[in-house]
Design a protein around this nucleic acid. Structure first.
Lengths: 241, 241
DNA sequence: GATTATAATATTGTAATACAATCTTGCAAA
DNA sequence: TTTGCAAGATTGTATTACAATATTATAATC
């Protein structure tokens, strides 16, 4: 496993028009946080795995100070759990938690949709349409790997149009925790087809600028995804018991 | 200012029936986090104040290690903002952010209400009724200081009945950030009266176990609070500009 | 005097080391 | 087999150190 990060934060790309100094914000602990987060999301550290600080130090090539502060951050994202005097454990996701998260996501994404239909610019609506077409193509051609990424773009536009950063951050943090469930759900081809239909409903409501329908469509979309995913995680939990 | 914390974590209260070992979970950094959080919420560190790590060390009587890890935690709660190479700054709350938070709160507390009406036990409903009466009394007798505390109890019961920890945690973290706005809002006597009415609506819906009305009542309650508070923070922002 | 260059200072970011508290494990004794 | 204890591992915390960066004060130049 090589998770090493570059100690000299490079990247002095100042090609854009702004004359602002490209302030080097990437601290080591920040890089460490990102790398560890990615490792957890990609399941290189499987749920339940007991992490050892010293091993992480070697793995990342940074000191314990930085590792510990990174762990503190991941703890607040609920990606790891700190057991006193035992150390960090990669968070597991119980069926109950997954259910809870999808309940909250439905409410929040419903709100996001409602706000988008209310505040979005025409350009943002067009952008959403464009992405949804892209999504359809990728599903048709079977490129399921890129579907999740495009889906993220889709939501980024929704959040931008909704004009509520707090909301965007909260949904994002929820999604981080159910990332693998989402991947699981989008991989199944029949789910993909249904997903496309639901996105079409969302687009329709967006073009009509109808907050209520947009909200409903977004909620239906999350609920529909949860109906695919939750039974699966229920099974998994049964198996391990 | 004395914010010192006790280094020897004391507290071996094992009077309850459980035979489980009362595991000593209070690490120094945890205590430090709590104390700093409280100091910020109580405005002993006013918004925008530049905190200096070494001063915090002396203030709390712990090492920089612990202080920094505590800061990492508060950063993720958005109570402080880390400026690279300048250090932690107590977070300020813009009018826009406040508006965003109240939007999200409305959605989340609406969900909490809906879930409570669906899942709560009869005992929990009775408990809610009891607390709301307590609340009415305190408002009548003008004890506004304790109103906010009882209101917290009220919500704790709602969350317990809603059976969604994730939801509870998210609302709680939002409330932390708008704590002073809430205090501001509840202090005004006429707001209190309206608040009592709204709580009565919530109670009514809870007893009827009507998810939809409970949801609506909870949303109305948050919206109503925001209508009192948001103009005030708008003024504040105008003044400082 | 105003502006710029330079130095001094303060603070954060990171590392390395140390040690006590605690947990885990394995082994010996009953 | 169970109990007790020692050894090892790991975290929690403190201390010290130093480089990188930001701020402030001072001197130099126009």
């Amino acid at each position: 496993m090589s998770l090493k990060l570059d100690t000299n934060g490079s990247a002095i790309d100042n090609a854009d028009s702004s004359l602002l100094v490209r302030r080097e914000t990437t601290t080591l602990r920040h890089q460490a946080t990102d790398i560890l987060r990615k490792a957890i999301i990609d399941q290189r550290f499987p749920p339940g795995k007991h992490l050892v600080e010293r091993e992480l130090c070697e793995l990342l090539g940074v000191s314990r100070t930085s590792v510990r502060e990174a762990l503190r951050h991941l703890e607040s994202e609920h990606l790891i759990r700190m057991v006193p005097h035992k150390g960090p454990v990669v968070a597991t996701l119980s069926a109950t938690e997954a259910r809870n998260i999808y309940e909250v996501r439905a409410a929040l994404e419903g709100l996001a949709g409602e706000l988008f239909a209310t505040h979005a610019t025409d350009e943002q609506i067009r952008e959403l349409v464009r992405i949804s077409k892209d999504l359809t193509n990728k599903v048709r051609s079977g490129e399921f790997d890129s579907v999740l990424e495009i889906k993220s773009q889709f939501y980024d536009v929704v959040f931008a149009g909704a004009q509520n950063d707090m909301l965007a951050r909260m949904i994002h943090s929820l999604n981080t925790r159910v990332w693998l469930l989402r991947r699981m759900s989008l991989m199944s081809p029949d789910r993909s087809k249904k997903m496309i239909m639901e996105v079409k409903d969302i687009i329709k409501a967006a073009r009509a600028r109808d907050p209520q329908s947009m909200k409903d469509a977004c909620i239906r979309h999350v609920k529909s995804a949860s109906e695919v995913v939750l039974p699966k995680i229920d099974e998994l939990e049964q198996d391990s018991a």
